[in-house]
Design a protein around this nucleic acid. Structure first.
Lengths: 171, 171
DNA sequence: TCTAAAGCCGAGCATATCCATGGGAATGGT
DNA sequence: ACCATTCCCATGGATATGCTCGGCTTTAGA
């Protein structure tokens, strides 16, 4: 009864052709889900991954692989042993969705040539007069603005405001 | 001297870890490059893919696979046989970067659950109260706004305004 | 009518992604 | 002292994706 569905998203079949453009991989998506769970339980001690995996319908072992870099980046801390688990290492208001995505998927950028301002020329050798590059830079900036402006605290507030008792099963 | 570099981008090695988040694949990137070339030569008859491939440093065979869906979508038309090639099927001002990306990579969406408004619930069964979904929808909208607001005519104007005689080698 | 230029088509390889498996090390309760 | 729980780490495999390659069809011009 405590578990809603197992591996809900894993079973989703992709559409016949190609998938989507500018897609976020499961690393970023599941990472945000997990961090949201930790944020909702902030201040209540460590939460085991098994709990998160069950609630979100994700693989516990896969989650372990995602939480490892989040720990190394200082976003979460762990408590080993029985009754252990993970908890946020910062205030939910000071962790943005962008922070999580960058740790798990690398710099936010539609192309290599706008991933890092400094070595753009090295990527295609044409950066100076490249028309497309300005487009990709605008795309990057607009994405960054959105994901950096939304914090875990914002998501928690939204969830609580929605009044849905099952908020913990969502996201 | 007419050819700048062969397969310039293909040779670029990826960084050691993970690459970038919300990345555009080569389909969309090369597609925009090719369409820009066609737009710069709009009204001058068919342009062979070999010419575009040489100028942009791309694989001709791979370009063929990208142009096929663009033709089926009615964005370009082809002339077979000797002295044949491709040309735009619309005015450059009425083809946006977003149009090209959608044809080559599918709907612009960071996740399945915001690719199509209608069947969102089917994807994860939690759409109603999903906090993350609103984030992904905002990301999608901000990307869409940028790429739909930039047309091939805009890129051509920029290129010509830059005064760079080698504009054709860029993008 | 022959030939070269060009578009068209399908198969195949290489790599990345997603996730599973099998263990080890640390900790708290009994 | 033991055991269950939990984090931690390394490897492997199935699938999807990105890209290349070879061969066929159509057409203009000599």
């Amino acid at each position: 009864m405590g578990c809603v569905t197992m591996y809900a998203e894993t079973l989703v079949a992709h559409s016949e052709f190609g998938g989507e453009a500018l897609r976020l991989s499961t690393r970023g998506r599941y990472g945000v889900k997990a961090m949201f769970e930790l944020a909702m339980n902030h201040g209540r001690g460590p939460i085991p991954l098994k709990e998160i995996a069950d609630r979100q319908g994700l693989s516990e072992h896969y989650l372990e692989q995602l939480v490892a870099p989040l720990r190394k980046a200082g976003l979460v801390k762990s408590v080993r042993g029985a009754h252990g688990g993970y908890m946020l290492n910062k205030d939910p208001a000071s962790i943005s969705v962008g922070d999580i995505i960058r740790v798990l998927e690398g710099p936010i950028a539609p192309t290599d040539c706008v991933a890092d301002e400094h070595d753009a020329v090295e990527h295609c050798g044409r950066a100076a007069g490249c028309m497309a590059r300005s487009v990709w830079a605008k795309v990057r900036d607009s994405i960054t603005e959105v994901v950096d402006s939304i914090t875990l605290a914002d998501l928690c507030e939204e969830a609580r405001k929605s009044g849905d008792k099952n908020y913990m099963y969502y996201i």
